[in-house]
Simulated assay, not measured.
Amino acid sequence: MRQRTTKNSEMKAEYAISSETIVILPDFDENGFLNALICKKDGITQAGLSPFNLIDTNLRFRGSSMRGALDGARTLLDKAYMNPVILDNERDIILFPSKSPFREDCVWLSLRHVRTYKRSGASHTRVELSNGSTIRLDVSFHTFNKKIQRAYELRYKMQAQTMRFEGQVVESGIGYHLTKGKKDLNYVGVKETY
């Protein structure tokens, strides 16, 4: 497998993964380089990056990385490998891999765009996407079902954690004033008294 190298800060508009992104497919060009096909509601765009690097570039553009997203998913799900990633929590962009993310034949699907899925032979799954398109993946129904359930679990746990954190921030507490003298190194908190 040949992959192009790219600067991590390079982000072209046509490489952007958005809420309209349905699936990201691997695609080899005539020179043997692995590229990504970005399938959106309005058509397909070819990116000059592998699917893994495309997602990493999008995460870095948002201030994260593939490693950070995979580590975060591993922590929330307590699962070691082949986890989904949250690309954008606010826009509900969660991508999950059909196989190991490091394999060149890995397809990435957007959780929000999977309409239905069913068996298609002993070791394949047919997935219907939100725009009416279909894709036949060389992954068993059982394996695909586990992957999509893991993506839903990640979404739920992230939402629950966010709500719990935001709820704690909103709660009123004890008021205090923080001060630091000219020669002091640390701030000192004094409780408000009424």
Rank of each mutant, 00 (worst) to 15 (best):
A16G: 07
E10G: 02
Q46E: 15
I55C: 04
E20W: 09
D56A: 08
S19A: 08
V23S: 03
G43D: 06
F52T: 02
D56G: 06
T45V: 12
G43Y: 10
N35G: 07
E10I: 13
S50F: 11
D56L: 03
A13M: 07
L49F: 11
I38A: 09
E14I: 10
D27I: 02
E10Q: 15
T21P: 05
S50G: 08
F52I: 05
D56P: 03
L25P: 02
M11P: 00
A47M: 10
Q46F: 04
S9E: 14
I38V: 15
N35S: 09
K12D: 10
I22N: 02
I55M: 04
L37W: 06
D29C: 11
A16T: 14
L25G: 02
S50C: 11
E30K: 14
D42R: 14
T21Q: 03
I24P: 01
S19G: 15
N35H: 12
T21L: 04
D42M: 08
I17N: 00
P51T: 07
V23I: 14
F52N: 03
I24C: 06
D56C: 07
E10N: 09
Y15G: 01
D27H: 15
A16C: 14
I22A: 06
A47V: 05
K40H: 13
I22R: 01
E30H: 09
I44D: 07
I22P: 03
T45S: 13
A13E: 13
P26T: 06
I38R: 07
G32L: 09
K40M: 04
C39P: 00
F33R: 05
I24H: 03
E10A: 11
I55K: 01
L54W: 05
A36K: 06
N35E: 08
A36G: 08
I24N: 02
E30F: 08
T21N: 00
N8D: 13
P51M: 10
I44H: 08
K12S: 09
A16N: 12
L37G: 04
D56V: 02
C39H: 13
I17E: 01
G32A: 07
I55N: 00
I17W: 01
D27R: 10
I55Q: 01
G32R: 02
Y15S: 10
G43L: 04
L49D: 02
F28N: 12
I17T: 00
P26C: 09
N53T: 02
L34R: 09
K40Y: 03
N53S: 12
C39Y: 10
A13D: 09
G43R: 04
Q46N: 14
S18N: 13
S19D: 10
N8G: 15
E10K: 12
I38C: 08
E20K: 15
A47C: 10
K12T: 04
I17G: 02
E30S: 11
S9I: 11
N35A: 11
T21M: 06
I22Q: 04
K40C: 08
L49N: 03
C39Q: 08
S9M: 09
I44G: 00
G48C: 09
A13I: 09
S18D: 11
N53M: 15
L37I: 13
L37D: 04
T57V: 12
